[in-house]
Design a protein around this nucleic acid. Structure first.
Lengths: 222, 222
DNA sequence: TCTAAATCCAAACACTCGTTCGACCCGGGT
DNA sequence: ACCCGGGTCGAACGAGTGTTTGGATTTAGA
């Protein structure tokens, strides 16, 4: 078993782009290919060819293909969690420590849906995160259980906002909302568009946030 | 309305266990391994070892690994669609051709959630279907677009039940409900249980159906 | 019982995969 | 000048992949 694992300290020590240009090239190419084609279908040779670097670069800079995958996963989920926590924190301040259900749901739903905007640079990262939920390595699922500590704040806030509900009801409904979010894949949107015959288009992402928050809020206020 | 669909004829021609015993062994082993470990992580050798048959059996009876995958997918989705359509049909008869939102949602949500019962024999098939949505072959995604013809009836029924809503609103909310359903994976339940510290348990599946229908109905009646 | 088709089996084929190795290049410090 | 170490490179290794093959074996029909 290899157990040194210096991965934690690495994130903070990443210099912007002073050195290790090929490292960033590999990181970006891998994230894009993984997000579009899936983890198992993308080989190390695909990544290095896309990045225009040597085949051995992946193992030299990241140790292994799985370690590269894990590093992308950790960075992107940390960013998403930070964006969510910031909005929840602001809502908590604004409402004297007890934000209403709608504000909590906006903090949960807003960031990942805004990342769907193809004009931004976050769409690929979001697709990567969603894909890692079903295709991830064993290490990544272990990290997903640690991610529960992040959901804890949202669950507690919802429990406080709806004290008359049985806690299990709150947990189940939170589970439903997360399901709505994780379903925002390319293929699912395509099916929706063909089903509605082009009537639905996800151009207006603030409007989509409102749609989802409306739907989820109704389920919570019932 | 619906096309001949060659998959249906296949099912009827399958003699229970008179002939082709190894074919059924391969089918069952493959479905189980694919559902648990994912499509790419399971090799033909894993399947034949699990089934206790020769390595060449997969290619002899099904042509290729992908063809085996596609046949499992077609049979299980056809079964799920038939169960849903039957309940929707009954509800349509009972309500003189215009079932309310709740009855439509029960026909959509009921069957897949009831399949989650580990006491039944459907849990593996459902996990297979859910997994095929994100890891499927190119042929399977083509079949998923054809599956829109099945959702058509549910979309039309919902449009008729809520004529005062803009059609795009109905389509989006149907998309949200499908997201809730496709999120019912092993890993997601595990996370929910650790988050709620064992408070939520999916033992009572009729209760879970009611929970989901309640949540979805609230979003539609808003 | 004999024959021919269907099925099974061990072995091999022709890849692709992630990873490793040893030689090189090149800029900076003693 | 030396060399030394991080970085790059082509090449190869060993393991694992889906599929094919040709002969044995079983099965079904006359």
């Amino acid at each position: 078993m290899t157990e040194p694992d210096p991965a934690d300290a690495d994130i903070e020590e990443v210099n912007p782009e002073s050195q290790a240009a090929t490292r960033n090239l590999v990181f970006a190419a891998a994230e894009r290919l993984f997000a579009v084609h899936g983890f198992q279908k993308v080989s190390v040779r695909d990544i290095t060819a896309e990045a225009g670097v040597n085949l051995a670069s992946v193992n030299y800079h990241f140790g292994s293909k799985d370690a590269l995958l894990l590093e992308i996963f950790r960075r992107r989920t940390a960013e998403l969690n930070r964006a969510r926590a910031r909005i929840l924190h602001e809502a908590t301040d604004k409402h004297q420590g007890h934000p209403p259900v709608r504000a909590i749901l906006e903090a949960l739903i807003g960031p990942p849906v805004r990342w769907l905007d193809p004009n931004g640079e976050r769409l690929i990262s979001l697709q990567f995160i969603i894909r890692s939920r079903s295709e991830g390595t064993e290490e990544m699922r272990a990290a997903l259980r640690h991610d529960v500590s992040h959901l804890r704040r949202f669950a507690d806030a919802l429990l406080a906002a709806r004290p008359e509900l049985a806690p299990e009801d709150v947990y189940w409904r939170l589970h439903f909302v997360l399901g709505m979010l994780h379903n925002n894949r390319f293929a699912e949107f395509d099916r929706l568009h063909t089903l509605s015959e082009g009537l639905t288009r996800e151009e207006d992402f603030e409007g989509l946030v409102k749609r989802m928050v409306d739907f989820a809020e109704a389920g919570f206020l019932r």
